[in-house]
Amino acid sequence: MSFLTAFVRSLPSIWDGIQITVLATLLGALLALVLSFVLGLAARSRHLLVRGLARAVVEFFRGTSLYVQLFWLFFALPILGFKLVPLACAVLAFGLNYGAYGSEVVRGALAAVPRAQWEATVALNMTPWQRMRKVILPQAWPQMIPPFNNLLIQLLKSTPLLSLITVSDITFQMDQLRSATGDTKAAYLVLLVIYFVLAYALTLCMNGLEALGKARLGQGRA
């Protein structure tokens, strides 16, 4: 059987694999985004305890391997009596790991908003929450998009780890095709192309978001 015939025949399972990969990427990114903001804002807190705790969480999840974190959630946690479905393990590991990196993006972008903007919000007697929501964040988030895009693509490219914890992602499906046909070159070439197309689609979305944010700040093309 030629590779092409086998490829066409397994298109449905390849499509399933792509969906799993995209789902894990998006859910992981969503959790990472939430954690980025929680930890990034906490890192700027006035309270030493809050700041210290955020710092510790960030350093731990940044400083330990994603691979080991995932295996710990998948293999070690059940021994302690908590069993999560494999996809949940992956989303949790991706979220915690990339959230730790993302919090530095949030912290840096908030710090990059000029102090004069903060002073204007004080002069208008806004509460700390109003300052953040109405003035500081709207100016900070377009700055976050390019580094967030980097992290998002890295997260996508971390998802082949899914196939190591029994999830049938796109890497798993293409590996099946490779063993069935014996055509290693072709199978992995197709897999490379699939990841590239997915990554590029994400980049286009993020570029659109960035342009929107900058237009709102009056920085885009008129």
Binding site: Q117, A120, Q139, L217
Partner: peptide, 8 residues
């Protein structure tokens, strides 16, 4: 001195 209007 620098106006400090909100660009957003």
């Amino acid at each position: 001195q620098q106006f400090n209007l909100f660009p957003n």
